[in-house]
Design a protein around this nucleic acid. Structure first.
Ligand SMILES: Nc1ccn([C@H]2C[C@H](O)[C@@H](COP(=O)(O)OP(=O)(O)OP(=O)(O)O)O2)c(=O)n1
Ligand SMILES: [Mg+2]
Length: 770
DNA sequence: AAGTGTTGG
DNA sequence: CCAACAC
């Protein structure tokens, strides 16, 4: 055991002041897959429901849980406990993905700082909007306070004084509103946790389930951390780490809190040791990182046994066909493929998978457009089988239990010269390529007046929620939340995308008590029939005063943030834009830079250990990137003259390198040392053009004078709107980059660009308003 | 364990 | 490329 348990004297721990500057929400949908299935088929609501994949019941609804069934049970096991368990196959994730992206989209109407975790969880950093929800003179809290017996207790005294109390209380209003919107829009209930960092928000969100929310104040951190038992109940400490901790005699969170630095560093590197300690104390400075589009798209298939190459090929082919569809929907081009197998293990199931990757030529995908041709399929299958043979010696017997394929390292689809002729002609919207299927393909909804409505209405039984319909057409037929006559108004013929706000004829829905009013173009039509179960499910507990709301809605913030569009952006145009662009417009208009929120990362994520011994003295460690990529670009310009060296990316390319910035004769000059030790040199010229010379590759660099920072409102909206989505996207990327650079240090400005970006730069000048 | 996804070394 | 972690 660890005899140094209470040895806190060694000052090797970096003892940081624990800040409470942020307000972070974590939301987690209740029994996600099961709820989605119940929304899709309401007759399942009053039955114990399990969702299965193969022989596993991945989740089940709360009724089933109350009857003794647990998440992640074997089907067999679950049926023994509950023979009349209703089962729905959940192998097809597409419905879950759709709902998932809509959840994130709703969160993104509050703030862009939304990080997805799996399909049903989101972290939301609401620090920059809590100000809009601060209410004078009230201690009223929405939902539970950690440790309370009943919800809505008055706030205990402020034991901190830094303002976190007010911010967190404001956070409870945001969480409440967000949850209501998710419910009103999608029919899903969820839990929320409100705290000053991600770890605590996540931990606390699970304290009252289902359909409830809980806030944790900084002075309760000690309590909540000590209420945990085994170390691996901390998110981030998984199986492997806790096994190693066990070897050190560290089993509980408390033991980890009291562990000595030296003990941990005997098995983990310094960063990890510090991170583990911090986690045990509830300290977590990791930022809420905006989730972009997925980094990988993959499929796998598990089975009892496969022993012939023919079967393997068959399996891979089936997966490939499905995967290519997902890929086409995504719209990007993968530059790498990954193939995996799981071999049958006689003994334990150590060593789960093996994978092999191979680069892919982008030309495989640039020809047929969306639908890859048969040749490509064939080529890919051959690549896959090639990789397979690297893993499995087929001259001997083999026994596989899983095969998988995935694409990664995506690049945006290039737009070639033919596109330029189309820039100024209006193309039918249908021809415009869709950027992504998933969570980028989301909707923006208007929320501003909604909570005001609820503020003014105190007499109804249920809190009023008024939303524009935003269910997709496919859901309209299935969801009880649908509105019969809404299809025309809400379906965007463009790419089958639904808009939350469209024309004047959009339909408002009000949920009032157990009745629903449909308010169409200001003409009230009451709908009474099937709407009852629409309001709030009778099977779900509805605590948190969703039901008896008395005055709670008056506690909602007066101030709300409506969408303010930057000048020059027409609302209609805005709405027609892909969500990604909408978001960027909103970002830009708020003058947000990533730098503010995505601060220097002081702690890396828990990292796995290698051979149970982590190097901790290698000089290397001191030169690992300390900042997230998005902060790097601006930092380049803050570098001191002379020879400051740090790890960077090669401006905007994502390629890691070491940058050495110097200034000679007022011209920026820097050299980049790439990972493979190759060198890229660059020096500025007076005409604003810079060419990078590399012994490895050629990079085109444009040193951008300030005037090239073109903002969207310099572009005629109608012209802009007529552009293909992909070009619009580029322009925004360009602007984003320009904005960051302009807002930092225009003095030394280097913009590295690839070919694609150069195109969009050159076309910008044609788009400026006269 | 299904089936996916992200990240750090 | 893989291990570790997450849902
Ligand atoms: N190992 C896992 C864990 C989860 N999921 C899926 C099924 C769940 O429905 C969904 C969300 O996971 P959660 O852990 O949040 O579980 P639930 O949402 O189902 O239940 P809870 O109400 O406890 O959040 O992800 C999965 O496929 N495999
Ligand atoms: Mg969940």
């Amino acid at each position: 055991m660890c005899e140094e348990d209470f040895d806190e004297q060694d000052d090797e721990w970096a003892l940081l002041p624990d800040h409470h500057q942020r307000t972070v929400l974590h939301i987690d949908v209740d029994c996600f897959y099961a709820q989605v299935e119940m929304v899709r088929n309401p007759s399942l609501r009053d039955k114990p429901l399990g969702i299965k994949q193969k022989n596993l019941m991945v989740t089940c609804n709360y009724m089933a849980r109350s009857l003794g069934v647990k998440k992640s049970m074997w089907l067999k096991e679950a049926l023994e406990i509950l023979p009349n368990l209703v089962l729905v196959d959940g192998s097809d994730l597409s419905h879950y993905r759709q709902f998932s992206s809509k959840i994130s989209a709703i969160a993104q109407t509050f703030t862009p700082h939304v990080e997805r975790l799996g399909l049903d969880e989101n972290f939301i950093d609401v620090t920059d909007i809590v100000g809009n929800y601060l209410c004078a003179q009230n201690d009223k809290i929405e939902g539970h306070v950690y440790g309370d017996k009943v919800p809505n207790v008055a706030c205990l005294g402020d034991q901190c004084g830094c303002g976190c109390r007010e911010r967190l209380i404001a956070g409870t209003y945001i969480a409440k509103e967000l949850r209501q919107q998710i419910h009103a829009t999608l029919g899903l209930t969820c839990c929320a946790g409100i705290a000053h960092n991600k770890l605590l928000a996540k931990l606390v969100s699970g304290y009252h389930k289902p359909n409830q929310q809980t806030v944790l104040f900084p002075w309760q951190v000690h309590d909540i951390m000590n209420s945990l038992h085994s170390a691996n109940s901390i998110p981030g400490i998984g199986y492997a780490t806790s096994k190693v901790l066990e070897e050190l005699g560290i089993l509980t969170v408390q033991q980890l809190q009291n562990s000595a630095f030296k003990i941990l560093t005997s098995k983990f590197d310094n960063e990890t040791s510090q991170r583990l300690k911090d986690l045990s104390l509830g300290i977590d400075e990791t930022p809420v990182k905006k989730s972009g589009r997925p980094q990988s798209i993959g499929l796998e298939d598990a089975f009892q046994k496969i022993i012939s190459v023919a079967e393997v090929r068959e399996k891979y082919y089936t997966l490939l066909e499905r995967l290519l569809k997902l890929l086409a929907d995504d719209g990007r081009i993968p530059s790498s493929i990954k193939v995996s197998v799981r071999k049958f293990n006689t003994g334990k199931m150590f060593r789960q998978r093996e994978t092999k990757q191979a680069p892919l030529s982008s030309s495989l995908f640039t020809q047929g457009g969306k639908n890859v041709n048969e040749d490509t399929k064939c080529t890919l299958l051959n690549v896959i089988m090639g990789l397979f043979h690297k893993m499995v010696d087929t001259s001997k017997d083999f026994h596989l239990t899983l095969v998988g394929v995935g694409f990664n390292k995506f690049i945006e689809r290039a737009h070639d010269s033919q596109a330029i002729s189309n820039f100024f002609s209006k193309r039918p919207r249908e021809q415009i390529t869709r950027q992504s299927l998933d969570y980028e393909e989301t909707d923006v909804m208007k929320r501003s007046k909604l909570c005001q409505a609820s503020n003014n209405t105190q007499t109804v039984n249920l809190e009023i929620t008024q939303m524009k319909s935003c269910v997709s057409s496919s859901e309209i037929t299935q969801s009880t939340y649908s509105i019969n006559d809404s299809s025309e108004n809400f379906k965007d013929s463009f790419n089958n995308r639904l808009l939350f706000e469209t024309s004047k004829s959009s339909t408002d829905v009000k949920y009032i008590g157990d009745k629903v009013m449909v308010d169409k173009t200001n003409e009230n039509v009451s709908v009474s029939d099937t709407r009852k179960d629409l309001v709030l499910s009778e099977n779900c507990n509805i605590p948190d005063k969703l039901v008896n709301n008395e005055k709670t809605s008056t506690q909602n913030p007066e101030k709300h943030v409506p969408f303010l569009l930057p000048s020059g952006i027409d609302r209609e145009v805005f709405i027609a834009l892909p969500v990604e662009l909408q978001r960027e417009i909103l970002d830009n208009s708020k003058q947000n830079t990533n730098v503010r929120t995505e601060k220097v990362l002081q702690f890396k994520q828990v990292s796995p250990m290698k051979n149970n011994l982590i190097k901790n003295k290698k000089i290397d460690n001191y030169f690992k990137p300390q900042v997230s990529v998005s902060t790097i670009r601006p930092n380049v310009h803050n570098k001191k003259k002379g020879s400051s060296v740090s790890v960077e990316e090669l401006c905007g390319t994502g390629i890691p390198c070491t940058v050495n910035v110097q200034e000679k004769d007022c011209q920026p000059s820097c050299s980049y040392t790439m990972k493979d030790s190759s060198q890229i040199q660059c020096s500025g010229t007076s005409n604003g053009e810079t060419i990078l010379n590399s012994n490895r590759d050629s990079f085109r660099v444009e040193s951008s004078p300030r005037k090239s920072c073109i903002t969207v409102d310099e572009i005629d909206p109608s012209v802009f709107n007529a552009l293909p989505e992909c070009i619009q996207n580029e322009i925004f990327q360009e602007q984003e980059l320009a904005k960051q650079i302009c807002s930092f240090q225009p003095k030394k400005t280097l913009i590295c660009s690839n070919r694609k970006r150069r195109n969009s730069v050159s076309i910008l000048k044609y788009l400026k308003k006269l």
